Simulated scan of single mutants.
Amino acid sequence: MPTGVAIRDVREQLFDAAERILLRDGPSELTSRAVTTEAGCAKGVLHRHFTDFDGFLAEFVLDRVDRMDARAAALRESAGSGSVAGNLADALKALFESVAVAIVALVTFRDELRARLRQTWPAGVPVLTEAMGMIESYLAAERDLGRLRADAVPGMLAPTLVGTAHLLFADRTGPAPRAEDVHRMVSTVISGALP
């Protein structure tokens, strides 16, 4: 892109380019040059808006985590309708078919990125910890509605569901798990918590 040409929504353009590369090629191919080439802009554009590449990646990860807020709200609002297993399976499938699994790999792959994220995200991998909070909140709402047993422990069920779903979706090279496989996993995990 020629110098002096205005780029609209630079951050979003760069974040979208990073997401495409991450999903298509994996974390090892995510470089500043790859991002700017994918975004169709000069390499200097990234460095004008971010302190360095790991700073860019940290903001990219946090931006994608923030996008989970709408998904979390929709899941909480589904409490009391449909089936608990169905709601959870749909939410987990939507989450892990997004960029979430690739972000986990990226955070694991880059030490400096993990260090940067620790400055604002003290524990865990941001996408996974946010997912656990989303699932735990939903399970607590379902327990309060009597659709889970009163002694169900959302704080234990949520990490089990998220961890198991992550394992189902972790292989980026093979086919994604089928909806019925995700539903069967969720049903198995929550079976003891149902009334």
Rank of each mutant, 00 (worst) to 15 (best):
V84C: 09
V104A: 09
K93M: 06
F109T: 06
L30A: 00
T31R: 15
L106C: 05
E59N: 09
G174L: 07
H47M: 12
K43S: 14
E130W: 11
S137R: 10
A74L: 07
P122A: 05
M156V: 13
V101Q: 03
G80S: 05
S137Q: 08
G174R: 15
A73N: 12
L95E: 04
L157G: 01
A115L: 06
S191C: 09
L167T: 09
L46W: 02
M68N: 06
E29A: 14
E130L: 06
P122L: 10
D25R: 14
L95T: 09
H183S: 07
G4S: 11
G133Q: 10
F50C: 02
G55M: 03
T51W: 08
A74H: 04
S191H: 13
T129H: 05
Q119I: 13
G4K: 02
S98R: 04
R20S: 03
Q13H: 01
R172I: 02
E38R: 14
L62C: 01
L23S: 03
T164I: 12
A170P: 04
F109S: 06
T108A: 11
S28F: 01
R33W: 05
S28V: 13
P195N: 13
V162I: 12
S32T: 13
A102R: 03
V45I: 15
N87I: 10
E180G: 10
F15R: 00
A102I: 07
G44I: 09
P122F: 05
L14V: 08
A79H: 04
G40W: 06
E180Y: 06
A140P: 09
A39D: 01
T120M: 05
A158V: 13
D151N: 13
R24T: 15
M185T: 03
R110D: 10
A131C: 09
H47N: 09
I7H: 13
I7D: 07
R118C: 04
L23M: 15
T164L: 15
D54H: 06
G192A: 12
Q13V: 07
D25P: 05
R24H: 11
F96D: 02
F15D: 02
V84G: 03
L106H: 05
T120W: 01
S187L: 04
L92T: 02
A176V: 12
P159A: 13
V104T: 12
K93E: 10
A193H: 08
M1L: 13
L23Y: 04
A58N: 11
T160L: 12
I135C: 00
D181H: 12
R149W: 01
L128E: 07
V182D: 01
R67F: 00
V101D: 00
P2L: 15
L167P: 04
